[in-house]
Design a protein around this nucleic acid. Sequence first.
DNA 1: TTGTAAGCGTTATCAG
DNA 2: CTGATAACGCTTACAA
Lengths: 334, 334
Amino acid sequence: MIDDLKNTKITIYDVASEADVSLATVSRVLNYPEKVKPATRERVLEAINKLGYRPNAIARGLASRKSTTVALIVPDVSRASVAEMINGVIDIARKYDYTVILKVTNSEVEVEDDIWQEVYASQVDGILYLNDELQERNIKQIRESDVPVVLCNVKEEDNLIPSVSIDFEDAFFEATRSFIKKGKKDILLVSTRSAYSVNTLKERGYKRAMEEANLDSKVIRTSGRLVVNYPFFQEYLRDNKPEAAIVVRDSIAVSMINAASDLGVNIPEELEIMSFQNTKYSRMARPTLSSIDNPIYDIGAVSMRLLTKLMNEEPIENVNVVLPHNIIWRNSTK
Amino acid sequence: MIDDLKNTKITIYDVASEADVSLATVSRVLNYPEKVKPATRERVLEAINKLGYRPNAIARGLASRKSTTVALIVPDVSRASVAEMINGVIDIARKYDYTVILKVTNSEVEVEDDIWQEVYASQVDGILYLNDELQERNIKQIRESDVPVVLCNVKEEDNLIPSVSIDFEDAFFEATRSFIKKGKKDILLVSTRSAYSVNTLKERGYKRAMEEANLDSKVIRTSGRLVVNYPFFQEYLRDNKPEAAIVVRDSIAVSMINAASDLGVNIPEELEIMSFQNTKYSRMARPTLSSIDNPIYDIGAVSMRLLTKLMNEEPIENVNVVLPHNIIWRNSTK
DNA sequence: TTGTAAGCGTTATCAG
DNA sequence: CTGATAACGCTTACAA
């Protein structure tokens, strides 16, 4: 059997005696290398290398009262947008040497309460929170937290909590206006049934544009579930012939495209569709889906970066970061 | 300001003095409640409740030399199959009170090496490892680990490492044979370019079925990337008219469907397509995609369960779990 | 059944 | 610049 160094548990004491210094010195070269004389520093580093020493993160956490760990709380990782955001978070976390704990709420209130407790017990240094159904109770929860929290891809109206997202209202305002400019009058907004707080913002943008043009708003709501959406649109489109539709999520838009096509409604000739999020779905759909691009990877990355600043108590200009969005035109619009 | 108990750091000492017992007793009611007299147990529990005490997981980890934390190492969370598996892992982890640390390798070798080191430094009790490009070096790495590792959705040929997956070879053997039974002769296998070890198994199943029927195997390889696949199939299908195709991944199959449709090749009349994985994509595509169902959520869940057994050193019948698969017939086949 | 006390592997505060 | 030594908050023999 090969003498595999990395598996025998070597402590800071072993390194200290190997380098013939005290453990305090070893600790220093790890944490404040400039405070130790180059010669001894070198010796310690060699010993560390030779023994394959890795500081025990748990002991370190206990002694320093920081865990260099953050919790990432999400509703469900299998949504394309959530997954992409996680990639952004993880990439930046790794860059700043943070470990990330993943928690998923499944949008269940009791689970979520437990998760907050667990996360505090884990002594995390910060929390990234993604929840597009943000409610008053969540906001209260967050404001009471004594570790920093940043909201990802969500925005709370009063700007009391650090957050990173696009300007949802503005995005939908623009998308709606672009249809209006093309002369469309009967423009539909397809939203969801449950009280997604961000969808409220999207609706607000849509309505503002419609009112500004003296057009009637028409909002319909479906569930977010794949099996329900297709028959929903089948029925809706049999009786209604909107000229254009703006949809709050790619997966819902794909169902709408499919239902329309199967009914013989021509896209984009008879019905133009603009979606939101610009996930892989929008490129895989036929016709390909025009979509408001929500830079979700960046949102994850920037959130994590913002959280590092908060954790280090660095001064921050603006804790409510608004990232730019833009509209990607594809074949579901003319 | 409300006196928010959960945010002031209360330790086991506070509980002990509140309940008028020693800290050891508090620790016992937390870890071995049966070892303490009901009356005092009750008193301690009350104190815990009153003070809102939550044991510090880090201190606990240091003292007990277990972290009740596992690492989940994946190549990329934005793949639909990976995301769904993570859901399975997390659900079971929560059930058994394990915290999960998420690490993503981006399939980069250096990153991966670092990750293994970080994970050991974090003192995790176990590791869940997902890597469909499993190489000899990875296997060596895993075998040297002194914490248990389970392979998710992958299988290593010698069955030396605990794993959970379907029988890839068998699945592709069956799928191929189902086409053969329908009288197809010109059956194509669409695989990927890089050395995905599981794709080797899939190819083996396909070839075995073809040979058994005295048919010529034909394997083509594309990248896994969305932008490359569509033009690739456009070109291929202009010059080749296979009767049927079996594809190793849903997203690739969708590109093939789209390219075929755009070339006027009728699916399933002129070309039948069978895919693998059965993600959301297969239901969103038009025509909907027949697919070998890989129970990826279950694979995540079962992997995590297996890992708990390994971590507790429970006796295990078989550390190489093979889950059943089945073929979902939709409209891309007749 | 309960308490005492010795760690767990670090960091951090002192002196020196 | 370096070395003792006291925390950090808990678990776990060992005693009582």
